[in-house]
Computed example of a mutant assay.
Amino acid sequence: MNRPATSTDLLDAAAELWPGADLVPAGTVGDGRPVRARYAVISRGSSPIVLVPVESSVAAGASLRRISTASTWWDTTARVAAGAMVRAVPGLLRHRVEVRGGADGLAEHLSGVLGMPVSFSITIGTARVNRKPVLQVFDEQGRCQAFVKVGWSGNTCADVTAEGRALAAVTARPYRYVVPPALLARTSWQGRPVLVVSPLEPSPWRRHRNTWTPPSAAMDELAERFASPDSELTAADWWHRQWRATGILPDPVSRSRFGRALERVAAIAGHRELHWGAWHGDWTPWNMAPAGDRVLLWDWERFETGVPRGLDALHYVVNALNSGAPASAEGVLRALALASYRDRSLGGAPHVQSLLYLVAILTRYLRLVDVPGGEHISSRAMQTLVALEHLADV
């Protein structure tokens, strides 16, 4: 396949969305093949980070204006300004590429799913274990109609499928505070799972005032909607799932260390009656946005029921206080200590909840260490294991 000199995973992924197509610099002498799509390449430094459709200045502007709640105020201002400028003067986007030739692709498939001609922007994110294409889908007037995730590897195919199942369950129940995206379609294309959800549209200026403070009302509501009867920890299916996951870890050292930590947790809290419910599984400041007293919440692939209640709040604090920092056991423990400031007693409810959170997140991390891309999570997994060992042996 011919590629521009700036070829990256993002550009390669874009070409694959039209089987057999080539991605070439705009202005390349025509060879008689149809142009499937035209994009402007937006880069950070020398690395392309998003492909913006240029057939509609409205869609191009919306692609650039797409807000991340992890962005600073200055970054948000720059995005909003850039979106407005491009909508007014599309020619500002000068680094352009074209998708030429090939067969009908994902764009045609999504047009059939949504019942209208569509175009989309493409992002693929930074290198990590769950890296996959995410599309912002527009109609012919440039209005955002959906967001789409595409499974790209064995692991990300499982994630996309899991998020579809999660949203089917979550959106079947009413909420006062939690606002998940509507599930528009669970489909497949070229053997890849494809998830289509409605856009959630956060205000670029409204922020969660204290980003380290979890939105407890919304978290409690989600847990309560999937509540199950109280039971002892070691009698719960969730606890047995953690043991089963430990038993199949390929690394004998990690398997042994995690197993000893689980035994210690059982000694501390095995006969404690716990409240059980659901957790989003990745509730962080950048996966949500405030909307009055409600919370817009996306990225549901880690959703799980039948878990100890309160895990979302701890995950939120750990990530909020360690965002952008290298993985460290000390950082995790400091965040958990802050979250438990009302009760630091050993074996008390906050201590037990912190132990169970570390067990839950470590089960996830260690499972991912040996999948393709697992090198991006291995350091965090090892530091989390150290934190669990420390907290269980205090």
Rank of each mutant, 00 (worst) to 15 (best):
residue 2 N to P: 14
residue 2 N to E: 15
residue 6 T to R: 13
residue 7 S to E: 13
residue 10 L to R: 14
residue 10 L to K: 11
residue 16 E to K: 13
residue 21 A to S: 15
residue 23 L to C: 09
residue 25 P to A: 10
residue 27 G to F: 11
residue 33 R to P: 05
residue 35 V to N: 12
residue 38 R to T: 10
residue 39 Y to L: 03
residue 43 S to L: 02
residue 45 G to L: 02
residue 49 I to N: 00
residue 49 I to C: 04
residue 51 L to N: 05
residue 51 L to I: 02
residue 61 G to R: 07
residue 67 I to W: 08
residue 67 I to M: 13
residue 69 T to R: 15
residue 71 S to F: 12
residue 71 S to Y: 10
residue 74 W to T: 13
residue 74 W to C: 04
residue 75 D to Q: 14
residue 78 A to I: 03
residue 78 A to H: 04
residue 81 A to K: 10
residue 82 A to R: 08
residue 86 V to D: 04
residue 87 R to Q: 15
residue 90 P to T: 04
residue 90 P to A: 04
residue 91 G to E: 14
residue 98 E to I: 03
residue 102 G to E: 09
residue 106 L to W: 10
residue 108 E to F: 09
residue 110 L to S: 07
residue 110 L to E: 07
residue 114 L to Y: 11
residue 117 P to K: 06
residue 117 P to N: 09
residue 118 V to E: 08
residue 123 T to M: 02
residue 124 I to D: 02
residue 127 A to T: 12
residue 127 A to Q: 13
residue 134 V to Q: 09
residue 134 V to G: 01
residue 135 L to N: 02
residue 136 Q to M: 06
residue 142 G to R: 08
residue 143 R to Y: 10
residue 148 V to S: 07
residue 151 G to L: 02
residue 156 T to I: 07
residue 157 C to H: 11
residue 158 A to Y: 12
residue 162 A to Y: 07
residue 165 R to A: 15
residue 165 R to I: 03
residue 171 T to D: 09
residue 172 A to S: 15
residue 176 R to S: 05
residue 178 V to T: 12
residue 181 P to W: 09
residue 184 L to V: 13
residue 185 A to Y: 05
residue 196 V to H: 06
residue 196 V to W: 04
residue 197 V to W: 03
residue 203 S to C: 06
residue 205 W to R: 11
residue 206 R to C: 03
residue 209 R to N: 04
residue 209 R to S: 11
residue 214 P to W: 09
residue 218 A to L: 09
residue 219 M to S: 11
residue 222 L to M: 15
residue 225 R to W: 02
residue 226 F to R: 05
residue 237 D to N: 05
residue 240 H to V: 00
residue 242 Q to Y: 00
residue 244 R to H: 11
residue 245 A to I: 00
residue 247 G to I: 02
residue 249 L to N: 05
residue 249 L to R: 10
residue 256 S to K: 14
residue 257 R to D: 07
residue 259 G to R: 12
residue 262 L to T: 06
residue 262 L to I: 05
residue 269 A to M: 06
residue 276 W to F: 05
residue 280 H to P: 09
residue 283 W to T: 11
residue 285 P to M: 04
residue 285 P to E: 02
residue 289 A to S: 14
residue 290 P to Y: 04
residue 291 A to V: 13
residue 295 V to Q: 01
residue 298 W to L: 01
residue 299 D to S: 05
residue 300 W to T: 07
residue 305 T to N: 01
residue 306 G to Q: 02
residue 308 P to I: 02
residue 314 L to V: 11
residue 316 Y to T: 04
residue 317 V to H: 10
residue 320 A to L: 03
residue 322 N to F: 01
residue 324 G to W: 01
residue 324 G to P: 08
residue 326 P to A: 01
residue 331 G to T: 01
residue 337 A to V: 00
residue 338 L to P: 00
residue 342 R to T: 13
residue 348 G to N: 06
residue 352 V to P: 00
residue 352 V to A: 00
residue 356 L to D: 00
residue 357 Y to L: 05
residue 358 L to T: 01
residue 364 R to E: 06
residue 366 L to T: 03
residue 367 R to V: 01
residue 368 L to N: 05
residue 371 V to Q: 10
residue 372 P to S: 10
residue 374 G to D: 05
residue 378 S to F: 07
residue 378 S to M: 09
residue 378 S to L: 09
residue 380 R to F: 08
residue 381 A to N: 03
residue 383 Q to Y: 03
residue 390 H to Y: 09
residue 392 A to Y: 06
